[in-house]
Design a protein around this nucleic acid. Sequence first.
DNA 1: AATTTTATTGCTTTATAAGCAAATTAGTCT
DNA 2: AGACTAATTTGCTTATAAAGCAATAAAATT
Lengths: 304, 304
Amino acid sequence: MISDIRLRYLYESAKLETMRAASDALDVATSSVSRQIAELEKELGIALIERGRRRIRLTEAGEAAFLYYRDKISHEEAFLSRIDELKNMRSGDIYLAMGAAFISSQFSEMLREFMEKYPNIHVHILTDTTAALLRRVREDEAHVGVVFAMPKDPKIRARMTVAQPLKVVINGRHRLARKSRLGLAELTNENIGLPEEGFRIRQIIHQAEQEQDVFLKAAMTTNSLDLLVDFVSSGRGISILPELVVQRGLLSGELRAVATDSPILNATETYLITRLGRQLPIAAHRLSLSIAAYLKNAMQALSP
Amino acid sequence: MISDIRLRYLYESAKLETMRAASDALDVATSSVSRQIAELEKELGIALIERGRRRIRLTEAGEAAFLYYRDKISHEEAFLSRIDELKNMRSGDIYLAMGAAFISSQFSEMLREFMEKYPNIHVHILTDTTAALLRRVREDEAHVGVVFAMPKDPKIRARMTVAQPLKVVINGRHRLARKSRLGLAELTNENIGLPEEGFRIRQIIHQAEQEQDVFLKAAMTTNSLDLLVDFVSSGRGISILPELVVQRGLLSGELRAVATDSPILNATETYLITRLGRQLPIAAHRLSLSIAAYLKNAMQALSP
DNA sequence: AATTTTATTGCTTTATAAGCAAATTAGTCT
DNA sequence: AGACTAATTTGCTTATAAAGCAATAAAATT
């Protein structure tokens, strides 16, 4: 490996024409300059400067070394500016894994603000099943995850937790809309739309059914939460969802979310997660703060 | 300036996935690897690896450093191979400044052999007046010079000197050809062809004329030595030249070179010169040896 | 030829990296 | 969940490389 210092001394000496000037510019003793150049020549096994002259004159090999070092500097500069970019978040990538339940226009708005603030950060958003999201976070495929009702996982750390009860979601004009609390049993004859099996929401509803020994017959199942929202909005029936999913309808008054008497449904939470022990890049850290603030505000707005 | 070692340790660690393996490969203590990487992070002000893991995982910045170092290595390799080329004379340039008198087919032959041996060395040959040749050597525009009858110059070193008397050159069938020595005065009525004023040869002839108070009237002057040789060969007249110029004709017996009684003409020499104190590149040095050998052999062949 | 400027060399001091051992931490295996 | 294993980190010492200083040598300038 070729010594950086030695090349640099040669370079400066050649540029300034004397070792003396180079040693001034480099703020070291001239003897060091002389010695390092001599050392470099010994290492390379070839003369770099023409000896026995006052002014430095490079040999062909010296010329080659000079050009090599000049390129080296510019590469180093490029690298350092890349580092600087990363340090100041002027570039980089954030991988965010989140449950489909959290995709909403409000969330988009928060994201838009973030991306406006850091225009060169690329935010990658992946939605998937809860299990798959957890795997992604565990394996560092995603920096941060936002998941609903996370099962225990020793390798995952919850950076933030927000209560996110599953509630009965109803059109504002629906006959059940005036209730402030509903028993699961009251829903058995309703027209219910639910997420497919495989959705974490559905699994939890199953647990609640078992808990209370109630069986809810779904009139419709889908893997599209949007479709469910539409199902409820249009007055065709009801659903059981986290409030965030119907955030917009709730805020406009079009929809209502009524809590149930099921402890299981009421205990569910949303988690902002990272892999245990993972140190986030600054950009990802900042984004996680924005998400945390967003989740907190959104829930407060919905349940005053 | 970024430390080479630190980058290297990071690079190896990332490549081999653990610092342990890297320290084995690098043959240093693991603690050194750990510390140098930590140091690099401190210098750059950004994390390069994700801490608190067994296997090395690079951050984005670490990735950037990794790629940077990889490029750096390949640049270094390219540079070293260039140096190696120069060291082994597989490339390079030699600037050779020589008097027109020395251009001959024998000289070409010597040069051809040299260039065959070192096919990637580019030999640049410049001919010029003696004064200009000296300037070129003095100013390092040429590595080596071959000049005739060099005037004193404190900055020029003669690496080799060969006696090169100016002789009267005659066609073998010429009436003067049988003489073994000629007085200058005997030439005054001959048909003489001489190099132009400005040629060193001509200057020396002038000195000899003054010395003996003889005036030689040239029937023809030219700046082409070839033309002079032709002039003599064709039997149109005689000339006064260094033997080397008519080397071929002398060896074939077509021409004869007869010494004069002028001490000045007899004392002239050919010099193989370099700038005083100049250390030649290996290639140029080798060529100078070849030239020296050539000059020596050529003169011996001519004056047994 | 004398003077000034520059480069080189010998020796000492300082700074940087390496080494070793102990402590800590993360991953793995019952 | 706890014990074990394999890795990293940290404190301290030793070795190595570079810097500094002073004296000497060499080259350009006057």
